[in-house]
Amino acid sequence: MSIYSDSFAAAFGLLATADSDLMEILYLSINVSLLSLALSCSIGLPIGAILAIRQFHGRDALVGIFNALMGLPPVVVGLLVYLHLSRSGPFGWLGLLYTPQAMVIAQMILITPIIIALSCQVLEDMHEGYKDFFDSLVVPKLAALVAYIVDARYSLMTVVLAGFGRAVSEVGAVIIVGGNIDHLTRVMTTAIALETSKGELELALALGFVLLSISLAVNFLAQWLKASAKRRAYV
């Protein structure tokens, strides 16, 4: 099918000429996704770690809830964030609707459960192996958490990548809370939705190729890091 080759050529052309509109959209996409990822990790990793090492009443139910929340539909999240950030909603006074910040909030809600649920699994395994040694050594809880996260760093990298993948590829939430406003809140996915709605299918697919190539580059880098870690038995 020539649509593939045409779109691929168009994608290459856009990247090769560093098309300024594309660069702006790309920059915002990556910025929004990385910031929401950073915030999600700073919330999600400690929660995942606590769930992994602490036994308390309702802990299993919480883990179940976070596992279920991994499948949160983006449009639902978008709608909820819209209702809260709308001028008529409880946080309307912040004036955040239709800003990149609103998109960060929506993506955080989408990916924090992923970070929590997956890191909890990784750290649970880590805890199983290290528990007796750390007990014997009387390692304080906080130092143990840090050690788990440090030692699980390569497995956690996969967790973080899963979060990034979800954030950067999601459209349903950011189009509602961001509004797909040109030069303000337009990101790769909403641009693809827009071009599709204009019937510019070739350009839409070209943008899709660009998005895909970013994901590929990030994942190859991670794969390479992980492979080198594996050679040192750090995974």
Binding site: N31, T99, Q101
Partner: peptide
């Protein structure tokens, strides 16, 4: 800084 200062309003 990009996000905390770059307010749209």
């Amino acid at each position: 800084t990009t996000f905390l200062t770059g307010n749209a309003v």
